[in-house]
Design a protein around this nucleic acid. Sequence first.
DNA 1: GGCCGCCCTGAGCAGAATGCGCAATGAAGG
DNA 2: CCTTCATTGCGCATTCTGCTCAGGGCGGCC
Lengths: 156, 156
Amino acid sequence: MRVDELDAKIVRLFTEEQRMSVLEASRILKVARATVQARLDRMTANGVIAHWVPQPEPRAFGFPVVAFCFLTINQDLGHDAVSRALAAIPEVIEVHTVSGDSDLMARVAARSNSDLQRVLDIIMATKAVVRSSSVIALNTHFEGRTLPLLEAAARG
Amino acid sequence: MRVDELDAKIVRLFTEEQRMSVLEASRILKVARATVQARLDRMTANGVIAHWVPQPEPRAFGFPVVAFCFLTINQDLGHDAVSRALAAIPEVIEVHTVSGDSDLMARVAARSNSDLQRVLDIIMATKAVVRSSSVIALNTHFEGRTLPLLEAAARG
DNA sequence: GGCCGCCCTGAGCAGAATGCGCAATGAAGG
DNA sequence: CCTTCATTGCGCATTCTGCTCAGGGCGGCC
């Protein structure tokens, strides 16, 4: 979908001030309320706004450790079956099929470095994963920063 | 912060049905409206609910390619300076300092595989990055799936 | 030039939700 | 027993939402 600057401004407003109402946004942007409504509906329908939900932050409730695990899987099962098995583990936040030496990459949260070992053991215990190699995130500078990209897309 | 099952149920409700109002949530959960309000306020104040904003999805507006780039940086500058330089590039969605052979890991979005090359060139042009090695996400099975972890934390 | 579709606009209205305050209740812990 | 804190139910004024409608501006198309 093509987005324009008004779309980006709307998203930015609702991002910066989450108490923003559609009505007030329309006042600030000096457009009709129905316009803001229509833009939001259109972006939601087209998936540009993928979700608008309270995002729990694992760091804030006891899972400060984040690791990226590169997994070599049991090829007999297939990627989808393995990702389903991984989806059953709550500590697994994210799974991609990737290019390169490994088959899958998973983002994993844990209570501590030793707890990470426990989670990795659970992953290996699924029998779906043959080998894993992990990289620990020592410091997260930023994440989920998609707004600048939306604005870049809006400019052309 | 410690979360209980009510907290998790509240987050689940607002995640599954984003048109949910505080009032209706209180009706469904059979608690007072003020309680739901208080829980949401508390979770927001403690960062358990990190953000509650429209999340733009790059795939939906022209950036279907996602890659994870492992960067070796110019040590003279330091991680923070480099991450600031990367923050100026809208295609860079996420940056972590990581353990292992590389210094930083960045999640990068791009319009296509060849466009990814363009973005990598921009990254290298900052002079902050000495070497990069990328892994392309061929298929995203799921991501941002933090709710199960919150529920696990709520159970104990 | 004239027609058409699309989007934005301003307005109105009923219904619903919010923000706020308050006193009472209940459970937990010292 | 007393204190503390979360929860509860209630009410009120204010605000927002969902919905609808007719009108106007604009670009594309024949």
